[in-house]
Computed example of a mutant assay.
Amino acid sequence: MTTRREQTSRESRELILVAAAELFAEKGYRQTTFADVAERSGISRGSIPWHFGGKEGLLLAVLERSVNLIRVGLTEEPGSVEAGFDRLMEGLNTLFTLPTTRLFVTLLVEALEPGSPIHGRYLEIHNTLREHCRRWLERLPLPPELSAEALAVTIVGAGIGIHQQWLLAPDRVDPEKALAALCALVAGAVPPAGR
């Protein structure tokens, strides 16, 4: 049986994780302080290291939570090939509009730095996204010259690129229109019988 103290601790941890994810997405990891997280979450600054040990521990916990949210959101499988194409298109739109997508794009540069503590988590995130896309694409009658694996890499790369451009120039890039264009390109690669 969970005690009230354990319940309060879990709730505080979740509030901290949500606030940190939002701030890391908005400001980046380096520019976010414990004071920022405490103010946004409404939880005392001293509670953050108690829960996570330090800023790196907080970052890793935020990424782990985000990967788990993606996995939960990507588990549904289509019932037929026709439904599979429609669900793939819906899934692409959902995937690239998740709040976590902005976080992943914002932190990408930090993940690429030598010795980065989040490099391994980013590999896991990209593997999860590619695997999800590949599983959906394998249900479709793709032309023989187009592998599901290669198309999955292309879709994930395009989604990340769209978000990068949008973060840099939100007044010039419409992510919804760009994602619709990506979906149209994928639809053009699938023979009509598969839709």
Score class of each variant (00 low, 15 high):
13 R>W: 00
153 V>I: 08
20 A>T: 06
83 A>H: 11
66 S>C: 03
74 L>Q: 15
153 V>L: 06
137 L>H: 05
119 H>F: 15
130 R>H: 11
115 G>K: 04
13 R>C: 02
45 R>I: 01
45 R>N: 02
106 T>I: 11
69 L>C: 13
13 R>N: 08
112 L>H: 14
41 S>D: 03
48 I>N: 03
28 G>Q: 01
107 L>K: 01
46 G>S: 14
124 E>R: 04
124 E>F: 09
27 K>V: 02
85 F>S: 01
151 L>W: 01
149 E>L: 11
56 E>H: 11
36 D>V: 02
58 L>Q: 09
141 P>C: 05
35 A>E: 07
25 A>H: 12
69 L>S: 13
60 L>G: 02
50 W>R: 11
45 R>Y: 05
150 A>W: 10
141 P>V: 08
86 D>S: 10
52 F>L: 04
110 E>Y: 13
121 R>Q: 03
11 E>N: 04
115 G>M: 06
13 R>T: 10
42 G>L: 02
71 R>A: 04
147 S>M: 01
139 R>W: 14
124 E>H: 10
84 G>Q: 10
89 M>Q: 09
97 T>H: 03
95 L>W: 05
72 V>K: 15
47 S>P: 06
76 E>H: 13
110 E>W: 08
96 F>S: 05
43 I>E: 06
15 L>Y: 07
152 A>V: 07
77 E>G: 15
90 E>K: 14
51 H>S: 02
111 A>E: 09
